[in-house]
Design a binder for these strands. Structure first.
Lengths: 236, 236
DNA sequence: TGCTTCAGTGAACAGCGTTAACTGTTAACG
DNA sequence: CGTTAACAGTTAACGCTGTTCACTGAAGCA
């Protein structure tokens, strides 16, 4: 019945991350301090260094966990939806992302708000947070590719896009399961508009115009769906 | 020839803000510390309190200055453009904003990146930074309203938007110089897409798909212009 | 049993924003 | 002109932060 030493370690590690998240929710990212976490757990600050090599590493682990939680939530949403129309799942996913963001604004802010304009990166692409972000992005990518392969939607021609853009998009054709550049362009369009919209709503940058952006989001989502040749989202 | 005391004060104040900006550019917002600024100026940290009541106030002043600089740059861009077609100025403005953002990523990050999801705000709407942001937003608002009044563009009907959204948009009709809700919807659409696009590009969130987002931005800008019933941007 | 591993502590360091008390210069006023 | 008050700036200190080092005590293993 007495816990193993490795189990104890895992339990403490989970407690640390849980505490960090609680502090994140209650006071924003600035409240997630090494000392604050230690204080909350009844430990001394250096004790945390047995679990994380630095404060930044703790935040990275928290970010990775949150990405994975969001990814799992969206995948569960897909699995529980029996609708054979994959286009409907795109609405499901988009609304799911927005709902999660609005329900967890602090977490969302940590994941997507903390923008790092680091032009000379060269090496921070293998952090836990970044890898988890890639897994998250793959969810949307996979669904869009499935939608495409189930019923290819009309897309702009290569002449419309121009050679420079086509060259870049074609380079991503393999990642997008063989979609043509015009279709990838629409997929990118879908993502950028959805992402931008949710960020602006959660970060309160729409407040000056709309006190409740829900209806606006719905209308925009319908427009974006139209661009992918999808039908009306829901009867509602 | 010896400078007045009030002039000396103004000069020091300008030096402080210039130093703060230099630190911002070279090391991000985290590098703009009270002590760092003082060190750079050969002063002791408490001396800065003769000019700013707190570190936050210094940042606010810097934000306000940057907003004003950006606003002035965009207005100068408009004034130097003799094109009577106001629609063309929308492209000019959009490209001007993007150019400024790409040329000054650190400053842009301070202005637009640091998102503050503060739901229980109630009182931070009168900071210098927020007021300057309103002046900045007014530039776009004014031009869109001018475009509308010069040549009203086709816009979605109230039935298309739904009563909830129409009610919110109508409440902004006065601010938008009497534009109808459908037109305000398109104006908002213009702003959200432009804003989201530039943020994603500057903050490197498009790098996984596009190494150079210029062509993509151009294509998107054309789409957004189409939605406002504008003609082709430029022969180029 | 003896040795090692490891969680955790206490003290300390450098850096941060901020405050209080103090010094010298500079402008203003009777 | 001389007094006085305002002002720019300093030094010292407080509490906070992330981080390191030397150390203790207990758990795990041979």
């Amino acid at each position: 019945m007495e816990p193993n030493r490795r189990d104890r370690r895992a339990a403490t590690l989970a407690e640390i991350k849980a505490t960090a998240r609680r502090l994140l929710v209650s006071g924003g990212v600035a409240a997630v301090g090494l000392r604050a976490v230690a204080r909350e757990l009844g430990l001394t600050p250096p004790a945390l260094y047995r679990y994380f090599p630095s404060h930044e590493a703790l935040l990275q682990a928290l970010i990775a966990d949150l990405y994975d939680e969001l990814t799992a939530a969206l995948m569960a949403l897909q699995d529980n939806d029996a609708d054979p129309d994959l286009g409907a799942r795109l609405y499901l996913l988009a609304n799911g992302l927005r709902d999660w963001a609005l329900a967890h604004p602090a977490e969302f802010g940590l994941l997507f708000g903390t923008a790092i304009p680091d032009p000379d990166a060269e090496g921070h692409e293998d952090t836990p947070g970044h890898q988890a972000a890639m897994r998250f992005a793959a969810v949307f990518k996979a669904l869009v590719a499935q939608v495409w392969h189930q019923k290819p939607f009309p897309h702009p021609s290569e002449q419309d896009l121009g050679p420079v853009l086509v060259a870049q998009l074609t380079r991503k054709s393999e990642y997008f399961d063989g979609m043509p550049p015009g279709a990838i362009y629409l997929a990118l369009n879908y993502w950028t508009r959805l992402y931008g919209l949710i960020c602006m709503e959660v970060f309160g940058q729409l407040h000056w115009a709309l006190e409740d952006a829900g209806a606006y989001f719905e209308a925009q989502l319908f427009e974006i769906g139209e661009a992918l040749g999808l039908d009306c989202p829901q009867p509602e």
